[in-house]
Write a protein that binds this DNA or RNA. Structure first.
Lengths: 211, 211
DNA sequence: CGTTCTGATGTCAGTCACAGACATCACGAT
DNA sequence: ATCGTGATGTCTGTGACTGACATCAGAACG
């Protein structure tokens, strides 16, 4: 007979998402999550540095995919092309089957400012790491940071759209379009007589719900 | 005889910054801050929704400046020009005299992840508000959000540079240069045979310390 | 001028996030 | 058979934050 059921961390994560989605994040205590899978509060905090982290733990692979995308770009690629490569690589971490899960998770995050803060912090960390990878390629400052943060922004916007009800395009496709839109935006930097801003999406509703 | 010394909130903010800078954020309790200005913990939390907020309260004017900059742009301005206007307006909130204060405040923030999270959240809120203002000007999605987030990114990078030891340019000047660098970055989207990334700053060190 | 109202504060008690110290005990290694 | 070892439980404490209620100087009012 085994002393402990295996996969404590994963069970905690699943239970947490479930409870957060039903009762809400603040209305769920860490002790409740732990007890719901037969563990104690103390064990919960041994697996996750804080209550929010249960929703964010384990994203190193995603970050790695982003960086891998940077490294996979040809050595003579422009910063923008490097970012495009990184976005493509990162998008592969979100196949369409994962959409329902991502939607549920994101809806929990969108309902709680504390979780939004953590998400932004993780995204900022991603940008920092990517910027470092860009600098390693010889890209200077502020270009490296600018490119990295832009990449993170594009990813964030694309992800938010990918999650949207009714959206069926792949994350990669959406990210590509958003990136092109960014180029369009900064590229059409004339005296305002350029073409009107293209409407990529049907609705004019805001992209990011929170904050 | 007055019952209470006036300016409780401001006194709390000043004391908090002072204590955070010396003892550190986590090593300072809300009760200590309150007692250091003759108040109680309960009163501290009546003025600030949480301990971190004492460093961030009162930025509505800054946000307003950003939005005013958006509204001040001519109606036929491109999104990028609108952002440039907003950046200029926002930068006016940080005259050179304020640099030492901003530096001290930022050094506290840079030393604590929880404070960085709050800062990012505020910046994201700024972007959301600016995006709304852009949509009100008839700019569609995702252009509005993209432009707003890019503006926030540029501001963040410029601010970080403005704070740097040895930097003497005005925030407005720096922001203008960073924005131009962004255009340069996305505009030079060729096959990599363009000019090498310009080195605006002497050092290649990372821009954002935290995360 | 006395009364009433109000707003900023204090007091008290409670919940919950989190952390340190120590005990437990199945299991694998020796 | 013994000995670690690692994941867990137990206990206890601190500090962030909240609700309920009391206080009281000064402003408003009759």
């Amino acid at each position: 007979m085994v002393r402990w059921e295996p996969g404590a961390r994963e069970r905690l994560q699943a239970a947490a998402l479930e409870l957060f989605a039903t009762r809400g994040f603040e209305q769920t205590t860490a002790a409740e999550i732990a007890e719901s899978v037969g563990l104690t509060e103390r064990t919960f905090f041994r697996h996750f540095s804080d209550k929010r982290e249960v929703l964010f733990y384990g994203q190193e692979q995603f970050l790695q995919a982003f960086v891998d995308g940077v490294d996979a770009a040809p050595p003579d690629a422009s910063p923008l092309e490097v970012i495009a490569s990184a976005l493509d690589s990162a998008a592969s971490f979100f196949p369409d089957e994962r959409r329902p899960y991502s939607r549920m998770r994101q809806s929990v995050i969108d309902r709680n400012p504390a979780l939004q803060e953590r998400e932004l912090h993780k995204l900022a960390g991603l940008a920092t790491t990517v910027a470092e990878a860009l600098r390693a390629r010889g890209i200077g400052e502020p270009a490296a940071t600018l490119a990295a943060e832009s990449g993170a922004t594009v990813f964030g916007i694309a992800f938010a759209q990918w999650i949207r009800e009714g959206e069926s395009r792949s994350l990669s496709d959406i990210a590509g379009q958003v990136l092109r839109e960014l180029v369009n935006l900064t590229g059409a930097a004339r005296t305002g007589d350029g073409p009107p801003a293209s409407r990529v999406w049907s609705q004019g509703a805001p992209i990011r719900p929170g904050t």
